[in-house]
Structures are given as structure tokens and as C-alpha cells.
Design a protein around this nucleic acid. Structure first.
Lengths: 144, 144
DNA sequence: CTATTTGCAAATAATTTGCAGCTGG
DNA sequence: CCAGCTGCAAATTATTTGCAAATAG
């Protein structure tokens, strides 16, 4: 828990109890959490935590770069605790969003884009959105 | 306007006046429109058109594949009239979202992913999210 | 005709805001 | 201390729904 505290402080945020647990929940979360998700996850152990605070805290963490906003289509703002370049696989039948990390792929894409010299744009990050379909026969049954 | 009518009908949708103008507005739009955007754009010429109808119509068009939902971070559901694979450039200073089409890039990415054989996933589409920074000195002034 | 679709208003969901009281440094 | 945070409730924004009236085919 100590280095989370340091991270917050180095960004100029007070290391409050709420921020520590919210940040930790986001980091340990295997999915890409929404405010609601974090709130539900923490409610049991921290009943006095309010949903409004979760919203504000996630926004602050994003503002200072400790979290990233995720682009989604599902009507909820989601966050991503990985702040380095990585990719996402959206499974069209199960609705899952999985991380996909591949340093080689990052290189391939960035090299390609660098060669192209798009307008007067300096590229900061790239993230691939892969839409796929799980061919697992067990899962197939669940297709709605 | 004729082939729009045909497209709707071929998908089993009645070619109503509202659908024709909404679909056309989405197609001619250089940005990636939200329901609100389409509504505002059409309000003048079609004052009886209701926002609820715009929501329903965009959802229907997406359902039959004439539009795609766009992943965003801005809290509004946006649509994209391009239904083939293409990429998006998000400009971090101006907030613009630009299309980026490059058949060669699609190939490079798909070939790479095909080689990897990710789990038991069949890849349906890929879309690259490029975050960049416009180096235009004129624009730099506007950075907030 | 009649199954769909529209317009409107009311309902719901997601997020933000205002502000009094609490708390970390 | 006291500036920055939190909790709460009310406000706002985005989207969906229900239903009677309109309309495409």
C-alpha cells in the first residue's frame, strides 16, 4: 500500500484512505472497471464510501495519468489501470473485453505510422481495437 | 436519395422520410455524429423530427449494419457511417477525431494477428486508435 | 388495411455539482 | 490550522420506454 501512497503524492494528490482503496481496486481488477463497478466492489468493506466520491476519485486519477479512460460502446465510462500501450479484444458473442499485450505489434504499428508521416502529427500512443468471435464450442451455446 | 431507400428496404426497414434524412445526415457528416448532433443538424429543415426518433433510428441503422457504433471516451454514443475497417486519430490538443484509412495498414495488422493465433478467436475487424498531438504552431496557441 | 414507425412526454441511467463538514499534511 | 477532500442529495445529461396517432407498402 505504501507505494500507492507515494504515487498519489508525487502527482500532488492527497493520499486519502478513499483514494488508496479506489486506486488499488482499479489496479487489481481484471476487467476494465466503471465507477459503478468499483463502488460495488468496495461497498462491503467500506460502507461509508459514496458513489460520488468514486466518480471524483477516478476522474482525478485519470487527470494525473494514473489511470486511463477506456473507449467503449457500452454507455458506461470505463477505466484502464494500464497506462502503457496495449490492445483490447472485444468478443462479439460474450461481450468480454480482454487485454492483449504484444511489444512486437506495438513496434510494427509505430514503425508503419512513422514511415507515413501523417500530416503534422506526433504520435503519442496507439491502441488496437480487435473485434472477434470466440470459436469455443461451449461458449457458442450461450450466443443470444 | 434513391439508393438510400433501397439500402433501408434491403435490410427490412421501411424507408420513412425520417430514416432517409437521418441516414443521409450521418453519411454526409464529416465528424462522427451523436444522436444530439444529428438532431441539431436536421432541426431547421425538419422541425417536427423528435430526438427520440433520432435515437431509435440510429439504433436501427446500427442494428442492420448501415452504421457502426463508435467507441469514445466523451460520454456520448457516437456513430460512424463507415462500416468497413478503418482507423481513428484522436488529437489530444484539439479534441478532433479524424478518420485514417490505409489498406496496407489493415493488411499488416491482420497478417500479424493471423500469425499469432490468439486463443480460439476468429478476428472480425480491427480498428486502430491513434492518439497524437498536432504540431501545427497555429493550433498550439489554442492548447488549454 | 395493418404492422411499423413516429412524436411526445415521462421514466430511467449515468454522471456531475453544490456545499457543509471532515481530514491529511 | 486550512486547502483539499468526502458524503450526501439534488441537478443535469444521455438514453430508453410506453403509447396513441400517423404512414409505408
Amino acid at each position: 500500500m505504501l507505494h500507492l501512497r507515494d504515487q498519489l503524492q508525487s502527482k500532488g494528490l492527497k493520499a486519502t484512505h478513499q483514494r488508496l482503496v479506489i486506486y488499488q481496486a482499479a489496479l487489481n481488477c481484471e476487467v476494465h472497471p466503471s465507477a459503478e463497478w468499483v463502488y460495488e466492489a468496495l461497498k462491503q468493506d467500506h460502507p461509508s464510501l459514496s458513489l460520488g466520491t468514486v466518480y471524483k476519485t477516478l476522474a482525478s486519477l485519470e487527470e494525473v495519468g494514473l489511470l486511463r479512460k477506456m473507449e467503449t460502446t457500452d454507455g458506461q465510462l470505463r477505466y484502464d489501470a494500464k497506462t502503457h500501450d496495449h490492445h483490447h479484444i472485444f468478443c462479439a458473442n460474450t461481450g468480454e473485453i480482454m487485454d492483449f499485450e504484444d511489444e512486437e505489434l506495438n513496434e510494427v504499428i509505430k514503425t508503419f505510422l512513422a514511415k507515413k508521416h501523417i500530416n503534422n502529427l506526433s504520435i503519442r500512443s496507439v491502441s488496437l481495437h480487435i473485434t472477434g468471435w470466440k470459436e469455443d464450442p461451449l461458449k457458442q451455446i450461450e450466443v443470444k
